[in-house]
Simulated assay, not measured.
Amino acid sequence: MLFGIALFPEKEVQDAANSWRIRHDPHYCHIPPHMTLREAEDWSDEKLQQAISHVKAVAVQTPPFLMTFNRVSTFFPVSHVLYYALEDPAPVIKLHQEICSGPLAITQPKYVYTPHVTIGQQLAEGELHDLHGKLKISQIRYTSHVDRVHLLYQTDQGAWTAYQSFQLEG
C-alpha cells in the first residue's frame, strides 16, 4: 500500500488553492491542497510501524508554527507545476528533514525539497506561462497555523486519506 506524509494548510489556503486546482490540477479529486513532507512509497506492515513510531517521535519534539504564502511560483522548466510559495520555508524544510531521517531516510532524493501547495500541474507550457504571469502580480498573503502532520494512504480508487494524524507538541 502507498503511504505518504503531508500537512494540510488551513481552510482559507485550501479554498484559494482549490479555486485554481478544480480546473488546473488533475489530482483535484484525489487529495485536498497539501504540502508533501515525504513522497508516497509502498510500505510493508513493518515499515509502516517504524514510520508511525518515527513520526510520533518527531511530532513530540516539534512545536506548532505559522507559515505564510506570499506568492505564486513555478518549477518550470523542470515540471509544469504552478504553486503557492512560502515567505519563509525554513520551518517546513526543518520538519521535512526530521521526518525524512532515521527509518524514513531518503538516500537519493529526486529533487531539492521545496515546500509548496500545488495549484496547477501538467499544464501546457503556454497555459503555465499565462497563468503564472497573471498570478505573480496578484497580492497573495495567506497565513496558516500548522499543528499536526498526517500519515496518508492511497485507497483502491486512487484517493488519499488520513491513516493517522500526529499533533505537534514541542
Rank of each mutant, 00 (worst) to 15 (best):
Y113M: 07
T161I: 11
F69M: 13
H132T: 00
P9E: 03
Y163W: 13
K11A: 14
A162S: 15
P63E: 11
F69T: 05
L123M: 10
S79Y: 04
L7C: 03
K56P: 00
P89M: 03
A124G: 13
K11R: 15
H54V: 01
I119L: 03
A124I: 01
W160A: 05
S101A: 14
M67G: 01
Y153P: 02
T107G: 01
F8T: 07
R141W: 07
E87A: 13
I52D: 03
Y28M: 08
A124R: 09
D45R: 12
P91K: 04
L151A: 05
K56E: 15
A57V: 08
P89S: 13
Y83G: 05
H129E: 07
Y163Q: 10
M1W: 03
Y83V: 01
L66R: 11
V55R: 00
Y153A: 00
Y28C: 05
G158N: 09
Q49F: 02
Q50A: 11
K94L: 13
S19F: 07
I106F: 03
V60R: 13
Y83E: 02
A85D: 15
K94G: 06
P9K: 03
P91T: 08
G102D: 10
T68V: 15
M35Y: 01
E125V: 14
R141N: 14
G133Q: 13
S144C: 05
L37K: 07
T107Q: 12
V81D: 09
V146Y: 01
T155M: 08
Q61M: 10
Q97C: 08
L48V: 12
P33V: 04
P109I: 06
K56Q: 15
Y83T: 04
L2V: 09
F75Q: 06
A57M: 10
A162H: 02
H30K: 14
G126K: 08
F166P: 09
K94Y: 08
H150I: 12
G102S: 07
A57F: 00
S79E: 13
Q97M: 09
H54E: 09
I119F: 00
L104V: 10
L104H: 08
S44G: 11
T143R: 14
S19E: 13
T62I: 03
C100H: 07
P77F: 01
L123K: 03
D25T: 10
D42R: 11
N18H: 00
A105K: 14
P33L: 02
V146P: 04
L128A: 09
I140H: 09
H24F: 15
P33N: 07
H54Q: 09
W43G: 01
L135Y: 13
P77W: 06
D156Q: 14
H54L: 04
D147C: 08
V117I: 11
Q61C: 08
G133R: 12
K47D: 10
A16M: 09
L168E: 05
T36I: 06
S79T: 15
P115D: 07
G170E: 04
Q121W: 00
V60W: 06
F65N: 06
A90M: 08
P89W: 01
Y113W: 10
V149E: 02
T155N: 12
H27Y: 12
V92M: 12
V92Q: 04
T68P: 06
F3Q: 07
L37N: 06
A159E: 14
E98Q: 15
